[in-house]
Design a protein around this nucleic acid. Structure first.
Lengths: 330, 330
DNA sequence: CTCACCTATGCACACGATTACATATAATAT
DNA sequence: ATATTATATGTAATCGTGTGCATAGGTGAG
């Protein structure tokens, strides 16, 4: 069928071992035979079979990336960081979606470990991670990205969510706001908890009382942002400033405001976590917290590569990347 | 190191062959031994090694997906369709970015073919595809998505771009517009050509003269949309209606208009290809052409699976999915 | 009772590469 | 000239599965 080392060996008049050594740049090979073999490789159009190689070396040079969702601008920016970094080192990435379900996440982990990936980068579906522990047994390194899980100790690359939302809320306060509504994600997700914590701390530090009725929790989706903003705005005395915990909720909330700009909401001002390309042209938005999305991915990839090469120094390494306050607006 | 069929065989008191047959549901295995073997598999925590299996079967149950960019909402919606469909059939997806370069695209193709993927789904970086022909030799099926290439005959899943933009422009005309500007993508990309063609045909069919000066070409990026809209708006007599060829240019164009809404552009109206979640809340937007993004991916996956199972009926199959005109707006 | 046949399982090789070990040749030292 | 070492290559085992062929035992027909 296809051309193997044996075919090349025969053509070059050497043994299969020699061909293999040429392919792997073994320094012991003489220049003469190396050239001869390489010529034959060219001529025959030989392509290495990485499946066979992997069987022998026990390395696939492939890693798995599991995100709660594929068609998601945030996760895919992380994925981009991962892919860019790993490709430089000759690795490929199998991308899986957990569909925001820990059960499915577990299935993907199974699948990927059976595919013998060298490592995993996971954005966990929820804060519960006991199904991760099986990976300890298989001895396959895992780096978490963006979110943490409980009861599983491993490397992780996160952002400083608490300070991020703190800074945004602080900015609002310094602009004279006193009543600041809150729209948050699912509290099972660590980032949602942390962003809420930052909000509370800022209010507390500036001696602003917490007003439970203008604090809303949902999930990180457009629809949820829409509904929670609706709830807030239908109060008799709605807050004029709202902190929103992620980009998608921000979009949903903006959607609601756009639909009702003539009736309810003319002068609502939003501070939002995330700063995507489109954030700057969404109406009502005053302040945003930019996350280094690509860097989350590339750092995670770097740590993973380190673990794959059996360097377990500083384990577990929890990286907290800084966020950036964006006030520029149109 | 890890548990193999041999270990299971020993534990169950059978041969490795029998274990293998149990795993693959060979009907000749008696229920009794099947149960015994399965129990041992459970007990030992045996996990199949798919690398070894692939070497033997010559099938990896993995396909490659190459897109010009990873952090791109459109491409990743296609990817989602691909992944969902393939996962149902037990396949995984290696995602690669060509970074909009045919050279890099070629590298990825090489890489993936050496990884022995069972098939490829590619959104080509450009309309030039002579480097695809090597795939014919390796005998690995390819399905193109979204875009076509010249000089390479294979299956493809596309949308009806010509009718899509025709319909949008027609809608503008029927709303009374006579001067309709055009912002288009790189004409090396087939969708850009087709969308331009639809624009021209609509004008022609309604006897509106083509005004070359208000027709602009760039690439499918935010920045390009921004610049071209700027060019249009800085004319002494700018068009009040503009057709924009994709979502990202739409965003860029809107960005420009937002920045200058007080000076230049208060009443510009945009018709745009693509209908992403955010499109509906972008200002200035009146009409959008929705593409079935996920369906592009799932259909491509279906065709690919068909080819992988050696069903080459109706080759090459070129699917043109319908677009949908969206006029709802806020 | 014998023969044919079916079922369930084992044996052993193959997939395509890597690699420890052996060996042949050349180079250098004594 | 011989011993020693370095260099370059070949031999053969191995990675974990799948599968063609062989075989042992069981069943039914004549």
């Amino acid at each position: 069928m296809s051309i193997t080392v044996k075919d090349v060996a025969k053509a070059a008049g050497v043994s299969a071992a020699t061909v293999s050594r040429v392919i792997n740049n073994d320094p012991r090979i003489s220049e003469k035979t190396a050239k001869k073999v390489n010529d034959c490789i060219q001529e025959l159009g030989y392509k290495i079979n990485n499946v066979a190689r992997s069987l022998k070396t026990n390395k696939t040079r492939t890693i798995g990336f599991i995100a709660p969702e594929i068609a998601n601008d945030f996760f895919m920016n992380v994925a981009k960081g991962v892919e860019d970094e790993l490709r430089k080192h000759g690795y490929s990435v199998i991308v899986c979606s957990s569909n925001e379900s820990s059960t499915e996440e577990n299935n993907r982990i199974q699948l990927l470990s059976e595919k013998c990936v060298d490592g995993l980068i996971i954005i966990p579906a929820s804060g519960e991670g006991k199904h991760f522990n099986q990976l300890k047994e298989v001895n396959i390194p895992v780096v978490l990205a963006d979110r943490l899980v409980a009861n599983f100790e491993t490397d992780a690359v996160l952002v400083d969510n608490i300070n991020g939302s703190y800074t945004a809320v602080e900015h609002l306060i310094n602009s004279g706001c006193r009543r600041i509504g809150f729209i948050g994600g699912d509290m099972n997700v660590t980032t949602a908890r942390e962003r809420y914590e930052g909000y509370r701390r800022a209010l507390s530090d500036y001696c602003i009382p917490i007003e439970e009725s203008i604090i809303k929790f949902g999930n990180y989706h457009v629809q949820s942002g829409y509904e929670l903003m609706k709830e807030l705005m239908e109060y008799p005395d709605p807050p004029q400033n709202v902190f929103i915990s992620n980009y998608f909720m921000h979009v949903g909330a903006t959607k609601f405001l756009m639909e009702h700009r003539d009736t309810i909401a003319s002068n609502v001002s939003i501070a939002s976590f995330d700063d995507m390309e489109i954030s700057s042209i969404l109406g009502f938005c005053s302040v945003r917290i930019r996350q280094p999305m690509i860097e989350i991915g590339s750092k995670a990839a770097q740590i993973l590569l380190k673990r794959i090469s059996h360097d377990y120094s500083n384990f577990p390494q929890i990286l907290r990347l800084k966020t950036e306050l964006i006030t520029k607006d149109y």
